[in-house]
């Protein structure tokens, strides 16, 4: 499996040249995809969400489609539509943009709840049902969605149940001064994309995903993960604790992270590394202006739960 690891490192390096100074976030995004999870990139406009999504698709060497979500976007625009074929006298299903390996869903919170839920159902089941026929989505299949949480006019915030479908929610944030200077100097990063050679392809990616699933998870680590989850449920200031699905996701993401760290087994450090990205968007405080629990909350949880000896 060494070539795969090398390819992965190449891919990371390539991503690093496009997205400047965000190596942790980039690694998290990659880990999310290696763990077969869907990714939500959440931030204000103009920090490179879409560029990151593009770069990911590019580097992974996957077929990709991009959908710009708007309030008048219909489920059929995403999933596809059955059209009556006059010559053959039957309805024929025209596959929508979702039938691809990587779907870029830009500004997902601008779409109506109906469209959102159509997409999210497809994400979860990795198949689409239309006209009594079920169509499987390709494998691998990822959704990389972006959204701007501060934009409130004309948006439909994703409910928790749907946010839960995203394995990770990554926030980019502004670049630091040095990297911003670099950005200003060199112009649009998206122009760099064509110059990047894909580091992986779908076959290699599937292989890596299998390897990630094989990363050892010790009982002790499960104990630690359970303690973390229990902690979120015990806290009185949270509306909901983490679901079992979130726990599964946490383990999978940790496995991917451990794989990227060239480890044969998941360490508590791996859990700690992915935990904010995996759980922050699933936790909500009961009160207060801060709707979405931020990194401060995940930090508190991490600090409150001792690593068992």
């Amino acid at each position: 499996m060494e070539p795969d690891r090398a390819a992965l490192q190449r891919g990371l390096a390539a991503l690093g040249t496009v997205i400047l100074g965000k190596s942790t976030q980039v690694r998290l995004c990659l880990a999310c995809l290696l763990a077969r999870g869907h990714l939500l990139i959440e931030d204000v406009p103009g920090v490179g969400k879409t560029t990151l999504a593009h770069a990911l698709a590019h580097v992974l060497g996957l077929a990709w489609q991009r959908v710009q979500f708007t309030s008048d976007l219909l489920p059929a625009d995403v999933i596809g539509v059955s059209v009556f074929e006059r010559t053959r006298q039957l309805f024929e299903f025209r596959k929508g943009p979702i039938f691809t390996q990587l779907l870029l869903a830009d500004e997902i919170n601008r779409a109506s709840p109906r469209t959102q839920s159509a997409l999210l159902e497809a994400m979860e089941e990795r198949q689409v049902s239309a006209d009594l026929t079920t169509y499987s989505l390709p494998d691998p299949f990822f959704v990389v969605a972006t959204q701007n949480p501060h934009d409130e006019v004309g948006t439909f915030a994703l409910p928790e149940s749907q946010l839960d479908r995203f394995l990770m929610c990554v926030t980019l944030g502004y670049p630091d001064a040095d990297h911003e200077r670099e950005l200003l100097k060199s112009g649009a990063r998206r122009e760099l994309l064509p110059q990047i050679a894909p580091a992986l392809n779908s076959v290699a990616l599937l292989r890596i995903q299998a390897a990630v699933r094989a990363v050892h998870v010790a009982d002790a680590l499960l104990d630690y993960t359970l303690a973390l989850i229990a902690r979120t449920r015990a806290r009185a200031d949270l509306k909901l604790g983490l679901s079992p699905r979130a726990g599964q996701g946490l383990i999978r993401a940790s496995q991917a992270w451990a794989y990227m760290q060239n480890r044969a087994a998941v360490m508590p450090e791996d859990v700690q590394a992915v935990l904010p990205a995996v759980v922050a968007h699933r936790l909500e405080r009961r009160e207060g202006l801060d709707m979405r629990a931020g990194s401060a909350l995940t930090d508190e949880i991490l600090k409150a739960v001792p690593v068992p000896l």
């Binding site: 360490m267 508590p268 450090e269 700690q272 001792p306």
Partner: peptide, 8 residues
């Protein structure tokens, strides 16, 4: 620290 893993 109690929450510190061995590698950290």
């Amino acid at each position: 620290d109690a929450h510190e893993g061995p590698l950290d």
